[in-house]
Design a protein around this nucleic acid. Sequence first.
DNA 1: CCTCCATTGCAACTAGTTGTTGCAATAATA
DNA 2: TATTATTGCAACAACTAGTTGCAATGGAGG
Lengths: 200, 200
Amino acid sequence: MTSRDPGTPRRRDAGRPRGASVVAAILTAVRAELAETGLEGLSVDRVARRAEVNKTSVYRRWPTKEALVAAAMDGLRTDFAASPDTGSLRGDLHALATPIADLLSRPEGTALARAAISSGAASDIASLAAHRMSEQVSPVFAIAERARDRGEWRDDADPHQVIFTLVGAILHRVLLEHADPTGPWLDSLVELVHRGAAAN
Amino acid sequence: MTSRDPGTPRRRDAGRPRGASVVAAILTAVRAELAETGLEGLSVDRVARRAEVNKTSVYRRWPTKEALVAAAMDGLRTDFAASPDTGSLRGDLHALATPIADLLSRPEGTALARAAISSGAASDIASLAAHRMSEQVSPVFAIAERARDRGEWRDDADPHQVIFTLVGAILHRVLLEHADPTGPWLDSLVELVHRGAAAN
DNA sequence: CCTCCATTGCAACTAGTTGTTGCAATAATA
DNA sequence: TATTATTGCAACAACTAGTTGCAATGGAGG
């Protein structure tokens, strides 16, 4: 019946550890539900049922629906910074655009992009998106620097504007035209943007 | 005490007419609320209170929240088809891009664009957006035809892709960068796209 | 093996939301 | 002025976000 000495600090890693499988199941369920119903139709209850987990276990990890979606987004991130030096501006642009288009062509990617755009600037989702964006930005703009070194880059072209135009065109294609942003269409877009950015 | 002859059809336009001011107040309130809270946070109750109208009067006109937002969107539409023949491709592109950027730079325009994108392809909002889009499309592509006639248009450039790239870049600027899409930035974008579409 | 103790499941709860319905008051128009 | 549709009002059902208290579970250290 002796109680634990209150002066002794509790062991930090005692007790039942958090099940990583629970987290994975929930985030997978979020992405699936998001693709089916969109951000507006997303219900935490349904997410929990799909993940075969109690609603309480969801709320214990993420305080709001927004935070939950932000976490799901974070899990799907892709490393665009890895785009290689292909030796030419055209090649670099293509190598950058391809994984972006691939991600956005998948239903989950489409749904997450929609969610990122639909939430206002102040939301968890938008600030996470902005943060991820800023992480990827500097390596991506190495493309412009390399092109400048090769004399391939037009002096008065703004690298931000060029890259964001490329991305914006892909987003328009996916989110408004509901069309596939890969294949010949993407090739043609890269040519268009390349002509806009290249010297001569 | 004589009751109305049941054989006589009721006068069609009898009774209290619908107040046009009620409609206007509601749609204005929707746009304001949408700009403040976004599509997700939009509450029909709050819209009604802001319009100083009973919630019931809203639901009697538009059966769902979606239809309500679609109506608000419809009321704000702008006629892009009116873009004039300026005599040059560069001028035409600029004349097209300017009203689009102006609309999207206003909070209401931003909010409505967000709403149009965030709702899935099956929604009222998205189908209205698609319909409005298709109305505007053919006059807009007169720009490409005129340029072709002048010998200014690049043979292998797809008019859809060029115009949608322009729009996509503006949307990216507004919805993801949260920046102003007008002024020098827009001028520079028009130059970029023009270089991509122009012959030579 | 066995005792901790954090994690999980469960059920009940508050509060806000969408959307509906019946009824009384109102206000144009013929 | 009588007609008749529109509006306001209040109550309603169903769903959702998010919270809380308690019992059951199960991994990790002893």
